[in-house]
Design a protein around this nucleic acid. Structure first.
Lengths: 218, 218
DNA sequence: TACTCCATCGCATGATCGTGTGATACCACC
DNA sequence: GGTGGTATCACACGATCATGCGATGGAGTA
């Protein structure tokens, strides 16, 4: 079953050559190529593509805005952004808006099919420099001092607790006795001025005392 | 000028084979290979490597903890994590701790040099599945409406619970029997697929399932 | 009318948690 | 050498929670 694709690209020449590439690959099926995204909602709903190739830098409504609109429809098809910039705010914004990956225009001829395959397999193709930006943004800034002066171990316990783990699981995850978990939690409660797990978790998450939670992404 | 490298890996065989690979490449220079990270601060400060290969899954102090320690020293050298897991919390934690990229152990033979080159050029090598997770984490979730189809009352209870209240307090705040609170919480657990307060609160806050404060004022 | 949700409440049992009172050991600091 | 903080562990008791098994009544719907 071929993968149906829609292209949004305002440059006639590039749109044509993208279309040609897609048509040359018999696992792909081009079902639309447009020079703007004015009617993108209708087009997506009508044509039901398996994948979208989206230029970021279009006059009028940008590709980023277009991605937001698609995601607002609750449609989770892969969208690969195309851009001439490799490390600017636009690419970053596109990721935040819900793009699945992106491809530099200078790499299209060599990597388009790789990128398509990667997003279809649940991956997220992106250039090294943006990958770096993305993971930098997730770093725990050492400057983030905890206002409750929790010790290292207490932070570990609190983080695990905030993921929803029981004492038993915390003990297993961190590698200590359940009694030690109790002890740490006792002092956490004192420092946070709370008296139950829920209070502690609530405070911890709302005041960002814990590391980001992975399970929330799945 | 060769790139100086330190390896941390508790498995003797793998440490040896990593060392051999590095030594075979004449642009790289192996300056240390250790089976644990107990003295990592001193080793890093003394040997001043250009790059670190770090096993995540070491007994005692994990590679993640070791990354944190390096970053706490204010040292920003690239650190590539090595792990057998490709999509778990540990990899995510490693990125948050400050890892520059990571490599699955099964891909070491084919991609070690690529990964090294990529981090040295400011990139962030990672597997497609984790790249996808990372990107998802930055998504602006389009105003989600009860993805778990909680009833009105269940939302009230969950909101109160997420503020850190006990069953007794929830009952008092909303105005119902503690047994009714239990019943609602039972169905909340079922719908959220959790089995404890902390799990529920964690999920509720992270996924913004709770109502805004206004609704609690009545 | 019957059926399906929702909201309300009760009870009982075993598991888990909250808390107090210990202890030992390491480390830094004065 | 003492003092204070951290990390580790143990035990015990009462409080709270998790869960299964009920029950009743109302609102909406086929």
């Amino acid at each position: 079953m071929p993968v149906s694709i829609i292209i949004y690209e305002d440059n006639d020449q590039l749109r044509e050559s993208l279309g040609s590439m897609v048509r040359l690959n018999n696992t792909l099926h081009l079902i639309g190529a447009f020079e703007n995204v004015l009617a993108i909602e209708d087009q997506i709903k009508l044509l039901e593509p398996n994948l979208v190739l989206m230029d970021i830098d279009m006059p009028g409504i940008t590709g980023i805005e277009a991605v937001k609109r698609i995601r607002q429809l609750g449609i989770e098809i892969p969208i690969i952004m195309l851009t001439v910039f490799d490390d600017n705010q636009h690419v970053f914004d596109a990721i935040c808006a819900g793009a699945s990956g992106y491809l530099l225009k200078k790499h299209i001829s060599s990597k388009l099919f790789d990128a398509i395959e990667e997003v279809l397999n649940g991956g997220a193709p992106m250039s090294p420099s943006v990958a770096q930006m993305v993971i930098s943004s997730m770093r725990q800034k050492p400057a983030q001092v905890n206002p409750y002066s929790l010790s290292d171990r207490e932070s570990d316990v609190l983080t695990s607790l905030s993921r929803g783990n029981s004492y038993k699981l915390i003990a297993a995850e961190i590698g200590m006795s359940i009694n030690t978990v109790r002890t740490h939690i006792k002092s956490i409660y004192e420092k946070l001025q709370v008296h139950s797990q829920t209070e502690a978790v609530s405070k911890a998450i709302n005041e960002k005392l814990t590391k980001p939670l992975l399970s929330m992404l799945l």
